[in-house]
Design a protein around this nucleic acid. Structure first.
Lengths: 126, 126
DNA sequence: TCCATAATTCGAGTATTATCGAACTATGGA
DNA sequence: TCCATAGTTCGATAATACTCGAATTATGGA
């Protein structure tokens, strides 16, 4: 039944490449992106890409669906939602600081072209 | 100058033990806890504890201050705040879903005894 | 049927992390 | 001064994780 722990989710995102993949998928929204599109965009060898996609899938952060020869991966927003809820929990003596609502607005269908926002910098100096 | 990346923060929390330490400190609030209190609570050998505390410190998630013989570690809330802002960013075509306000309520001085809320389960099945 | 493409799996090599006993460095009290 | 305590650092070992070429498994089009 594979219960996933918070630290497993964090560890999955705690890798430059996987975080970049995840963020691409979050931006891509519901339709997602197929593997080689991601691979081309991040310049990853297929085997390496597959390894990371499998990791993200295993912990449930992304889901893949096959469409003919392609596999489209998309972020599973509620999982991130729960993770954020977990992180914000207990910081105020057990009361949640932030409403956990990421999933309600997440799939956000790309209405227009939408200026392609910030690049996938996972290196932002924060 | 050491710029810390989001994936480094996530990786730091992506370890069962470090996440448990961090959550203890988040709950402990501003005064923090000294090393051996944490070590006793999590049954960690001193060397192992030091290793993880150093890791969390290096990425800025916690800060230590020496008080006589003791070193009190405390969570640095704004860093988590920024991390959460980063995670919630871009999920709605560049607009932030959640207000990044964790730090405003974070240090939350333990008013009364406060029922000691949930244990440090980082294994919550999410 | 045959070939090209999409993607995964295998396997081997490399690199990074984690663990923890033992030695070491303060600091404070007797 | 001497000892106990709080913590860190060192160093060696063990365990995981990452990378990626090559082989493998679909799938669809010619």
């Amino acid at each position: 039944m594979e219960t996933i722990t918070a630290s497993e989710l964090l560890a999955a995102l705690g890798h430059e490449t996987r975080l970049a993949i995840y963020r691409m998928l979050v931006e891509a929204g519901e339709p997602g992106l197929n593997a080689s599109t991601i691979g081309a965009s991040l310049a990853l060898p297929p085997a390496t890409l597959s390894f990371h996609l499998a990791h993200l899938s295993r912990v449930g952060l992304i889901k893949g669906r096959q469409v003919s020869r392609f596999i489209f991966y998309a972020a599973d927003y509620p999982v991130m939602d729960q993770l954020i809820a977990f992180l914000t929990h207990n910081c105020c003596q057990g009361e949640t600081c932030l409403p956990a609502t990421a999933s309600t607005c997440a799939p956000a269908k790309p209405k227009a072209k939408a200026k392609l926002s910030a690049p996938h910098t996972t290196k932002a100096s924060l």
